[in-house]
Amino acid sequence: MTYEWDFFTIFQSMDLFLEGLLTTFLYTVGSILIGIVIGLIACFGRLSKFLFFRGLARSYQEIFRCTPLLVQIMWAYYALPLIIGVNIPNYIAGLVILSLYVGSFYAEIFRAGINAIDKGQTEAGAAVGMSQIEIMRYIIMPQAIKKMLPAFINQSVIQVKNTSLLYAISIAELTYMTYVINGETYLPMEAYTIAAVMYFSILFPLTQFSDYFERKMRRSD
């Protein structure tokens, strides 16, 4: 007996899907932007000449890279409030953890990009009297950004998918909405197919752009 797809019923819930998609988009963009700031701070912490900052940055990175994101989200929402005695709304827990998580990976990407720049570049800037900050701003970062862009886009693509874990704390992003719609329509095939197509439609253009950019960079080298 072949399955009879019933997209007509599912499409009745299109407004919910789109609401979920918007929420996914907002958490993605929000956590990426905050994650970039956190990543930069952690990156420069890793590169600092002071052991304290290096240690702090390293610890932060290891904690967030070596534990599952889902566990981090659950811990922030269920366990942390008990420790600090303050209730943490799910949207705050979700956004903060997503940002800290992606920030730890961004920090590594930024650090690798900066370290990939030849030491001679720093020396050339130093030799005309530029300060460390000026060298970073005018010489190192412009070159490093080009080098780190593919890895950065790759991580950001993964981040779009990471937002789906927020469903576990009842944040109404796309995966959660799909779960709800399925609960009402009992059409899991259709519901999750639509969800997959929606995620794909956001991510495919991003991966294509990343490939295009990488090809362009390789040609110009």
């Binding site: 001679g120 570049q121 020396e123 050339a124 030799a127 009297g129």
Partner: peptide, 15 residues
């Protein structure tokens, strides 16, 4: 110091 003393390197180090 480095504004008064210029240096040229073996491997150029141009940007």
């Amino acid at each position: 110091l480095r504004r008064k003393v210029g240096m040229v390197f073996q491997h150029f180090n141009l940007y």
